[in-house]
């Protein structure tokens, strides 16, 4: 078996002196879907932010190796060029910047960094129209400013749409299910499933089990107090749904 796509080794990190991750370790291979679950404040979104390169966090120990390289040494845009994609929990509005223009710039930056020719307007439009079907977005989306005035559900669908266009190698979905009604949840999950290939991996961060009715993970990790305290198959998610987090986190407290 080849090297893992992503290796997180004993990661310790915090913000403003407060420790959030306490020795988190995780391995993911290409072709896999992993779910990270855990109670509020367990460090789920911190992990997502650190992987994407947000600078607010201080990393005190540990390593993140992505495709054999030190991920933490790379600037956020470099990570993006190398195929790391974060679907934001709260997608950001950028008024005045047209969605098509934004996405074309993003895609062409990535292509440039990878020595591929940039797409011209026509080629891009053809690609985009194809990809819009993945998340059932209306075409007028493209004419609107990035996320500005979008509903919560539209913003989440837009994240998955961007993911479809950028074709990441490692997609991190940070609570993409939060704030979605059941139809939107289905559309988003189906979109994610369609984007799955043997060469990419998806790290799905969620608080609730319900997303995992649609996205079937190879592994489920339970995060508590900044480290993974239990790993299992998809059935672990169902168990959590039934019993809540207490039965594991309490054990963790005792173990600690």
């Amino acid at each position: 078996m080849s090297k893992p796509l992503l290796e997180i080794k004993n990661l310790h990190a915090g913000v403003e002196g407060r420790k959030i991750l306490n020795g988190l370790s995780l391995e993911m291979n290409a072709g896999e879907v992993h779910a990270i679950m855990g109670p509020n404040g367990s460090g789920k979104s911190t992990l997502a932010s650190i992987l994407a390169g947000r600078e607010d966090y201080e990393i005190t120990d540990g390593q993140v190796i992505y495709q054999g390289e030190d991920l933490l040494e790379m600037a956020p845009e470099e990570r993006a060029h190398k195929g790391v994609f974060l679907a934001f929990q709260y997608p950001i509005e950028i008024p005045g910047v047209n969605s098509t223009y934004f996405l074309k710039a993003a895609l062409n930056e990535k292509r440039k960094a990878n020595g591929q020719p940039e797409l011209d307007a026509m080629e891009f439009l053809t690609l985009v129209k194809e990809k819009m079907k993945v998340v059932e977005l209306p075409e007028d989306f493209l004419k609107r400013p990035v996320n500005a005035g979008f509903s919560g559900g539209e913003k989440k669908r837009n994240e998955i749409f961007q993911m479809a266009v950028l074709e990441p190698t490692l997609a991190i979905l940070d609570e993409t299910d939060s704030g979605l009604d059941i139809d939107a949840l289905r559309i988003v999950a189906e979109g994610v499933n369609r984007l799955k290939t043997a060469n990419n991996a998806q790290l799905v961060i969620t608080h609730y089990q319900r997303l995992l009715n649609y996205i079937v993970p190879d592994q489920v990790h339970v995060l508590s107090n900044g480290r993974i305290i239990k790993t299992g198959g998809k059935e672990l998610a169902l168990e959590l749904e039934e019993k809540g987090y207490d039965w594991i986190t309490k054990g963790d407290a005792v173990a600690a």
């Binding site: 390169g53 956020p76 993006a80 997608p91 950001i92 005045g96 993003a106 950028l166």
Partner: peptide
């Protein structure tokens, strides 16, 4: 009144767009 926030810049960075290009993009849009 609006502000180019660190969140907007980071969002662009995460999509592969450099900070300077992001600022130019937002300012030109404005």
């Amino acid at each position: 009144t609006s502000k180019i926030g660190e969140d907007q810049i980071f969002y662009c960075n995460q999509r592969g767009i450099s900070t300077q290009d992001a600022v130019n993009m937002i300012v030109n849009g404005f």
